[in-house]
Structure formats: structure tokens, C-alpha cells
């Protein structure tokens, strides 16, 4: 992986100072603190997408299934078993993993657009289950629940307290993600993304690596979904829907797939952009859509990925266009494998 250098550390430190000061800064910028919380939540979800899209080279276009499962997992465990704050997050995380274990085996042999479409289809199955099983999930109306107190301390986290809890989770995910992509496993995922056939000819059963990456991604996304559920104290079927998946994929690509903080940059632009534009303009999706198109055409590596390439000493890296191969074929040596 690219070393981040002294300026990378400085920028990261400044970023975290700003995030720590957000409860003080947000009112001066006329932003609600819940918007800052949403930014962090969706940044976590986008990091889950980034692991697959930016580091493994598969297209998780049905990722919101894990996000929604996280929200429902947290909500149902609170409603039915009166679990505490941390337990509900753990259950939401596990709900995401269970989703990945269920659909993973069907996705494994697919690549490129086939993987993406099949994943959307499976995601919609979860959507319809949540929509149909009204007595458990509340169906179309969704389900309300309360934010439970923190285990042991009995504290109800609210406003800035809740924001800081989410910031702590975000920080842990960033550190874990950073360690993961620098590990041999992370390096192997990047290798699979760049040339799966070669990876197989280095003795790697690539399907197994993609499956494990999918599970890790689903855990992160389930966690993000559980946090979101606790944030709005509500879970509803559209959280599982492919529109939701699309939003998270957009954030990832906008910010820069394949970079650690790209998802955060994407979430900041998307969530705050939506908040500002949607109150000012009824057709707010259009400028955001235009920005996205401009990004894909002009900066396929996203805003952060492009900015990093402009730093001194990084100019001559990597041609663009390598990153998003939407029509990558099913790799050749599986044609006759099964």
C-alpha cells in the first residue's frame, strides 16, 4: 500500500480534530448535529462498500441489504429482548454477517456486472421480506423503537453524547480498515482486483478471499445500519432497498474508492449536499447526479483519489480507468471449472 507520509498524518490529525469539534462547529455552519452523525454513519457504510469496490474489485450493488439488516437486527433485538446499546449494535453487525453468509455462496462464482445484478436481486429479497412480514417488521410503515441505555452505566446517549459514540465507532472502523488493507490479506485482495487469473496462478483460491471480504464488508455495513437505526430509532424496508445501495455506492465512488478516507469525503459531500440542496431546490438530485457523472468521467478515482495523485511524488502512478471495470468478464478458468 502507498505510504501516507508526514503530510498524510498531519491531514488525518486535523480531520479528527475537526470531527471532535463538530458539536461546537456545526451550529455555526447552520448544520444540525444529526447531519454530522449521519455523515459518520454513511462513511462507515461506504467503507464497507469500499472494501469490495475499491480493494477487491467486486461491485456490491446490493449492499444496503446488510445496512438494513443491521438496522432491523438492532431494532428487533431492542423491541423483543430489551438489549442494551452495545448489544444491539453487536446484533446488528451479526445480522449483516448472516445476510452475507446466506447470499455469499450464490455470488461467489460471478464477477463484474453479473455479481452486481445478482446481489441487487438478493438485496430485494430482503426488502420484500421486511415489507411482507408485517407482524414482525411493521411492514411498509417500519418499526419504531427506543434507543437503549449503555450497558453497565445506564446512560442514555443523546445529542453530542450519541455523536461521540458514533465517532468512536467510526475511528475504530478506520483503524481496523487501515490495518486490514496493509495486511497480507489486504494485499491479496488488491492483487485479486488487479488480475484475478494471476492471483489464482499464485496458488490463491480467489473465491474464498472474496467470500471473506464480503463477510467483513457485511459486518461493517451491518454495524453502520445498526448505528443508523439507533440514530433515527426507526427501521423501515427502504433501508434494504437498492436505491439505498446506490446512494452508498455513489458516496464511495464520489469520494474515491480504494482510499481510506474517500468514503468519508463522499459521505460529507453527499449527506451535507443533500441536506442543503433538498431544502433549497426541489430538484436537488440533479446537481448531485451531475457531480457524480463528472466524477466518473473526469476523476474515475474519486475526489480524494484524484487529489492524492496530484500530491508531489505521486504523479506518475496508475492510469485512470483501471478502477471501475463494470463489464469485467467471468474469469476464464472457471468457464469449465464447474
Amino acid at each position: 500500500m502507498k505510504p501516507i507520509g508526514i503530510w498524510g498524518w498531519v491531514a488525518t490529525a486535523i480531520l479528527f480534530v475537526l470531527l471532535l469539534l463538530a458539536p461546537q462547529l456545526a451550529p455555526r455552519l447552520h448544520l444540525a448535529l444529526t447531519i454530522c452523525t449521519d455523515v459518520l454513519l454513511f462513511a462507515i457504510a461506504a467503507m464497507a462498500v469500499n472494501l469490495l469496490l475499491g480493494y477487491t474489485g467486486v461491485l456490491p450493488f446490493g449492499n444496503a441489504a446488510f445496512f438494513g439488516l443491521g438496522a432491523y437486527g438492532a431494532g428487533l433485538s431492542i423491541q423483543n429482548f430489551h438489549v442494551g446499546f452495545i448489544t444491539s449494535l453487536v446484533i446488528g453487525t451479526l445480522a449483516g454477517v448472516v445476510g452475507a453468509v446466506l447470499i455469499g455462496p450464490f455470488l461467489l462464482r460471478r464477477r463484474g456486472i453479473y455479481f452486481a445484478l445478482l446481489m441487487i436481486a438478493f438485496g430485494q429479497v430482503f426488502y420484500f421480506i421486511a415489507y411482507r412480514f408485517t407482524n414482525i417488521t411493521g411492514g411498509e410503515d417500519g418499526m419504531n423503537f427506543t434507543r437503549p441505555p449503555l450497558e453497565g452505566l445506564g446512560i442514555h446517549l443523546q445529542d453530542a453524547g450519541f455523536y461521540y459514540a458514533i465517532l468512536l465507532i467510526f475511528t475504530l472502523v478506520v483503524v481496523g480498515f487501515w490495518l486490514l488493507v496493509r495486511s497480507p490479506f489486504g494485499r491479496t485482495l488488491v492483487a485479486i482486483k488487479q488480475n484475478e487469473v494471476r492471483a489464482r496462478y499464485l496458488g490463491l483460491n480467489t473465491d474464498r478471499f472474496i467470500f471473506v471480504a464480503l463477510m467483513i464488508s457485511a459486518a461493517i455495513e451491518g454495524l453502520a445500519g445498526a448505528c443508523y437505526g439507533l440514530s433515527i430509532m426507526f427501521a423501515y424496508p427502504l433501508l434494504l432497498d437498492w436505491h439505498q445501495s446506490g446512494d452508498i455506492v455513489l458516496m464511495t465512488i464520489l469520494g474515491g474508492a480504494g482510499t481510506i478516507f474517500g468514503p468519508l469525503v463522499g459521505a460529507i459531500i453527499y449527506v451535507i449536499g443533500e441536506d442543503i440542496l433538498s431544502t433549497a431546490l426541489p430538484w436537488w438530485q440533479i446537481p448531485l447526479g451531475a457531480l457524480f457523472v463528472a466524477c466518473v468521467l473526469g476523476f474515475p478515482k474519486g475526489l480524494l483519489g484524484t487529489a492524492l495523485d496530484l500530491l508531489p511524488g505521486r504523479k506518475n502512478r496508475i492510469e485512470p480507468g483501471h478502477d471501475l471495470d463494470f463489464a469485467a468478464p467471468i474469469i476464464a478458468d472457471r468457464e469449465t471449472t464447474r
Binding site: 497480507p184 490479506f185 490463491l204
Partner: peptide, 23 residues
Amino acid sequence: FPELTVYENLAVGIESADNLSFR
């Protein structure tokens, strides 16, 4: 692996042979 360095290209295979890829 075009975007990885020569070192990393070789490391992927060495780690595979040493059963370290799942670390």
C-alpha cells in the same frame, strides 16, 4: 499486478506459499 510494485507482486506469491495470505 500492474499497479502494485515489483516487491508487492512478488510478496503476494511468497505469502501465498507461506500460507500467510489469510493473515
